[in-house]
Design a binder for these strands. Structure first.
Lengths: 337, 337
DNA sequence: TGCGCAATTTAGATCGTTCTAAATAGAGGA
DNA sequence: TCCTCTATTTAGAACGATCTAAATTGCGCA
């Protein structure tokens, strides 16, 4: 049933050369004569030879495999990110080991151990909430190249690919202010990640810069249901905000739902702005004004950073920050009242 | 910089036993004495030993790695599916190699070759449109266990995990008919996959069964923009359908958008029903009536099937079909007129 | 004390590839 | 013809685990 695998040795025997020569052909070495190469390639095709990358790695330490750890696969932000990584790595003939930490640092370390055992060449990590800031150092000691993305722990000790949320939040707030809004609330999340800190920083800066009023910060669970439930809390704020900026589009969409349930029409009675510009921003009603972060591009950038790091392990640490752009739609209108 | 890796031999030397014994401990064999086991485990912890799974596979042919190929990562149906696979495999201490075929059979074969080279234990495949029906046989010849999921090529020659779209479509149509709709159109897609065939079959059966009128079939590109563009075509049907059943929720959401752009209010002037019940079904306006397929569960089922197949390579072919359930919301109302 | 038997442990070959160091071939020059 | 290069090719030892088959240990009992 299970026929024996075709190995280098088989190819060598049939082609009448040594294993070493076939190995050179496989790796496209210029050392081998054209006639020999052609012959060997012919035999490889005839026998349907597939090089065993695991065995190769044992000798030369490159598995052409990288690991990616994301905190969830539900938010399409992460899956688009993943798509970017996978695309770029595939073009480079590398393969992606995927894992989901569920935002749990313990699970995350288990995954890293597994990845180590599989001999991945490097890791792209969006660190789980509560990740030990020492993790990057530990990984350095393991000799495991690391690129952080979307979130970051430690003090800029690794390569990093992300979006400029400070700028992104500023764009959103400026737009609201320019549309006439003065009292702006922020619908945030419980999780204390660098992604959270960055948005908070952006919000505070933007409020100062524009002279608008910080109408209060409400925290919700990171799901549309959580956001919908928080609508009442937002409506109860004694500042009665005329606009709510949301941590991301999932929250924004959920909030619009909750507002409508509470009898307030988003985009008319109260403005809602999201962050990330997920595809769903164009499917909600009213269409959601959001700040595009292009996660696919961030993923591709992370992949590029890792590829570079693998090539030059001692290169200087680099950061790749994708610029945000505001997508004005219908949810952010201002109606005096 | 890169310190040498800790190997079985290192552990053996420090613990004062042979490599073979350490190997037995690693594999939790009952053959080894308790005292020895404890000692070895202590040393493994002290030295931070990580077993090299690639090297192990070379000898025993199990990489504890499986490959998953999906046709895209944008539709959240596939990412939830993926999430189910990853979850189940992770619990089983296996790792997932992820790849995106972009619905291109050529790319798909390249990926399969890569997977072969990496020595995956098996593959979960959602075949790209236009996949050669012989593929499963070829993979069998390679000795590469295969579970198909969500789509299928060949004549039920492999294990398969999917949803019952025939039943799902029937549920949707019956619901529409019971609500008073008589003229029902179907918004389909260009791609001719088994997933397409199944829905068509379901639609035809349901029309016959309920005695409703097949108001026409319109095909669109599989994206919300494509669906939005197709709205005018649907509105031009001389049957003037009172309800449109859509291939999936992405199309349904896009269609609602297109209808509104054309001045028709979905859920009032014309009913819209989706399939899959993606999270976005609860974020659209009006809330989208849809048929839940629980992709995460399908993914888990696919993983279970593959695990079983790896355990018993000669077991009979098995199919695991998740039952659909109708989620009635606001988009499917009937307003006489 | 010596033997049989089960419980542990182990030496050494092996998986498929790459690397090192050296061998061989071929071409041109003296 | 013989020698020196350069261009190709190769034998054999790695890599880190597992497997096989055999060796060792220890215990109970005659």
């Amino acid at each position: 049933m299970k026929q024996t695998k075709v190995t280098l040795g088989d190819v060598a025997r049939v082609a009448g050369v040594s294993r070493a020569t076939v190995s050179l052909v496989v790796r496209k070495s210029p050392l081998v004569a054209d006639r020999t190469r052609e012959k060997v390639e012919q035999v490889m095709a005839d026998l349907d030879y597939v090089r065993d990358i695991g065995a190769a790695r044992l000798r030369n330490n490159s598995s052409r495999t990288i690991g990616v750890i994301v905190p969830n696969l539900v938010n399409s932000f992460f899956t688009e990110f993943l798509s970017g990584v996978e695309q770029m790595m595939g073009d480079d003939d590398r393969v992606v080991l995927l894992a989901n930490s569920h935002d749990d640092p313990v699970r995350q370390s288990q995954i890293l151990q597994r990845f180590r055992g599989h001999g991945v060449d490097g890791v792209i990590l969006c660190p789980a909430e509560g990740t030990d800031p020492e993790l990057p150092l530990r990984m350095q000691q393991w000799g495991l190249p690391l690129v952080q993305s979307l979130r970051e722990v430690g003090d800029k000790v690794t390569d990093y690919a992300g979006a400029d949320y400070i700028k992104g939040v500023q764009l959103a707030v400026r737009h609201l202010v320019e549309s006439g809004h003065r009292r702006i609330a922020f619908l945030s999340v419980f999780a204390r990640t660098s992604a959270w800190a960055e948005r908070m920083e952006g919000f505070n800066r933007a409020i100062t810069e524009t002279g608008a009023e910080d109408a209060g910060i409400v925290e919700a669970e990171l799901s549309w249901e959580g956001a919908a439930r928080s609508a009442s809390e937002l409506l109860k704020l004694e500042t009665s905000p005329s606009a709510v900026l949301c941590f991301n589009d999932v929250l924004a969409a959920g909030l619009m739902l909750g507002l409508r349930r509470a009898g307030h029409e988003p985009g008319r009675d109260i403005a809602v702005v999201g962050l990330d510009d997920l595809p769903l921003a164009e499917l909600t009603y009213p269409l959601l004004t959001s700040v595009a972060m292009i996660p696919e591009e961030i993923g591709a950038a992370a992949a590029r950073l890792l590829a570079r790091r693998l090539l030059k392990p001692d290169a200087e640490v680099e950061r790749s920050i994708v610029a945000p752009s505001l997508m004005i739609r219908d949810s952010s209108a201002y109606h005096a009242g």
